[in-house]
Design a protein around this nucleic acid. Structure first.
Length: 594
RNA sequence: CGGGGCGUGGCUCAGCCUGGUAGAGCGCUCGGUUCGGGACCGAGAGGUCGGAGGUUCGAAUCCUCUCGCCCCGACCA
């Protein structure tokens, strides 16, 4: 491809509203343009990478017998009403009416449509299992689209769905897909981790997320340094260690024992308690208390309390799952203060008549402090399982952090990573098949709902994530398998007949050898501009043809990532490129994704 | 949703406070000199200053409304 004919408009400056590195580089490299908030044009260069990644996804899924189809982006409301998601899927579902005033939506996902397809086509256990997928545009009207392609409103996604006669079969398919995903991301050439994740409100089944590791990732991942346990910090099990009492005697509750005027922050509390008439109360004798409002599926609400060690952070996702509710939010401060009768900072669990859950790291703890529900006072001698009106037990309710002892193996410690969620495998169970009567006849002629799984990969997000993980000060560092082109061939002076003749010949030779070449044949451009553009676009190899080199009988092959340069005779350039490709791909296989 | 910020040639921005009829750099076009890390000289094209209304002799600038875009959002129960 001649660059003089290509739609590649590079920008020297960073566009004003690009805030993450992948978005900045993709916009500067002329790969994407923003059309509206969270909506982008994928220009030829970006689309080449997208198609390459789609190709990898297709190949690997087809190896496991998945079949590709394509469902409409516009979906009728009836299906969504049937699954009840018309009411429960929030404003992210973009709804609209057609000319006949019938309700439709833009598909943010396709469970309803695929279930409808399968229930109309499949009647017998003999036709199961089946695994169908599509690669398609999705629309989710995000509250706040951001980070370029990472959280857009319109994006390309691979979504796959499997249907099974029984649980065991669905479980096998889950692990088949799990392994397919590992192959896919390994081939992509990025560092990634499959992590255990929270399954959310969709159902009690299990799920893994696939994360591309990148410092800019939105998700915190904790991984044990001794065993395989890796999980999203939303769900990571926190270790339960004995409470660090040092042989002190257990006291009865001493209400409003400490006068703590104006002291709210935990650090200040510790200091205040220490200065009070008590010898050296450690910080972790302080407890903290959170008041949450839980919303059930039927939209009724109730309040619950959570008690934690002062140096721990709450994990609302764990509490939400324990309660089995749809939403969990903090009670607005004015309401919490009204309920307590004390100002923020002095609200405590003891007097409140709401169900109170206590983090298990406080099991066996006593002589704690807590807010007295009386402004400027704290209780002392608090013991959760003794002093609460509605004690609901000790549970794992805190956020695990880096350095925590791994509860799975008891040996390793958690290491923290940032990750970008690019894929998820999910065992759905029978939620949709039951709601939508997607049933089959089993071997005994009895009707039963199919067991389902669903498997997604954010195609466009993955391409952005690749860049988040692979760039330097000068531009992108494309992994070979998804680079828009493999070789950037630079004619430093195409007006020079010798230079252009050699460059033209190399372009043809390389393309004939299956190498994808972008030939910068633009005239009147100084070499500096071409080098800068090549670095920015970041194809794995750069092949420079200039009058100066030709005088010495050489062209120059440079590895974008290592910056290593080899000079070869023009006749040897093709073989040098092929050798470099082998080396790069071998390194990729060795890295194996981890 | 709440809070904050920004909309001025294709891109990045200045001008706005203190109204006087729009600028710079990059990019683009033409001519010339250059030609191994974003070259130089000269000549050009290109903007009803997001939109509507108002104040004024006069509005990019002041006021009101509106649309769009960007950022932040509960160490406290």
């Amino acid at each position: 491809m001649k660059q003089s004919r290509a739609l590649i408009q590079t920008l020297r400056e960073v566009p004003r509203d690009a805030d993450v590195i992948s978005q900045q580089l993709m916009m500067r490299a002329g790969m994407i343009q923003k059309l509206a908030a969270g909506i982008y044009n994928y220009l030829p260069l970006a689309y080449r990478s997208i198609k390459k990644f789609e190709g990898i996804v297709r190949e690997e899924l087809e190896k496991d017998g998945c079949q590709e189809l394509l469902m409409p982006m516009v979906q009728p409301a009836e299906l969504w009403q049937e699954s009840k998601r018309w009411q429960f899927y929030g404003k992210e579902l973009l709804r609209f009416k057609d000319r006949k005033d019938a309700d439709f939506c833009l598909g943010p996902t396709h469970e309803e449509v695929i279930t409808d397809i399968v229930r109309r086509s499949i009647k017998s256990y003999k036709q199961l299992p089946i695994n169908l997928f599509q690669i398609q545009g999705k629309f989710r009207d995000e509250i706040r689209p951001r980070f370029g392609l990472m959280r857009g409103r319109e994006f390309i996604m691979k979504d796959g769905y499997s249907f099974h006669a029984d649980d065991a079969c669905a479980d096998r398919e889950y692990w088949t897909m799990f392994n397919a995903y590992k192959r896919i991301f390994s081939r992509l050439g990025v560092k990634f981790r499959p992590v255990e994740a929270d399954s959310g409100a969709i159902g009690g089944s299990f799920t893994h997320e696939f994360h591309v590791l990148a410092g800019s990732g939105e998700d915190a991942i904790l991984s044990c340094d001794a065993c395989e346990y890796t999980s999203n910090s939303e769900k990571t099990e926190a270790p339960c260690l004995p409470y660090p009492h040092t042989g002190e005697a257990e006291l009865p509750l001493k209400p409003a024992h400490f006068a703590t005027p104006g002291i709210v922050a935990m650090e200040d509390q510790a200091r205040a308690f220490k200065d009070a008439d008590h010898d050296g109360l450690p910080l972790d004798h302080a407890s903290k208390f959170y008041l949450y409002r839980a919303t059930r599926a039927d939209e009724t609400t109730f309040d619950v309390g959570l008690v934690l060690r002062s140096d721990h952070e709450p994990n609302p996702v764990k509490l939400k799952n324990l309660l089995g509710v749809s939403f969990l939010d903090l009670v607005p401060l004015p309401e919490a203060e009204a309920l307590s009768g004390a100002k923020s900072g002095f609200i405590g669990p003891v007097e409140l008549n709401v169900p109170i859950y206590v983090d298990r790291s406080l099991e066996g703890a006593f002589n704690l402090t807590c807010g007295a529900n009386k402004t400027d006072f704290h209780h002392f001698g608090f013991r959760p399982d003794r002093d609460l009106k509605q004690f609901k037990g000790f549970h794992d309710l805190r956020l695990a952090v880096e350095g925590d002892l791994c509860p799975r193996c008891g040996k390793g410690r958690y290491q923290a990573f940032r990750g970008i969620e690019v894929g998820q495998v999910f065992k759905l169970g029978t939620k949709y098949s039951k709601e939508m009567a997607c049933t089959y006849l089993d071997t005994e002629g009895k009707e039963a709902p199919m067991v389902m799984g669903c498997y997604g990969i954010g195609i466009t997000r993955t391409v952005a994530a690749v860049i988040e993980q692979n760039y330097d000060a000068d531009g992108i560092l494309w992994p070979w398998p998804v680079a828009p082109y493999h070789v950037h061939l630079l004619s430093l002076d195409p007006a020079n007949p010798e230079v252009s003749a050699v460059a033209e010949r190399l372009e043809r030779e390389l393309e004939a050898a299956g190498i994808e070449v972008l030939h910068d044949d633009r005239e009147g451009m100084s070499p500096g501009v071409k080098f800068k553009d090549a670095d920015l676009l970041g194809f794995p190899l750069r092949l420079t043809v200039g009058a100066k080199g030709l005088k010495d009988g050489v062209v120059e092959l440079r590895d974008r990532r290592t910056k290593e340069v080899v000079k070869v005779a023009p006749e040897g350039a093709k073989d040098a490129v092929l050798a470099a490709r082998e080396r790069i791909l071998a390194e990729l296989r060795e890295a194996g994704g981890r």
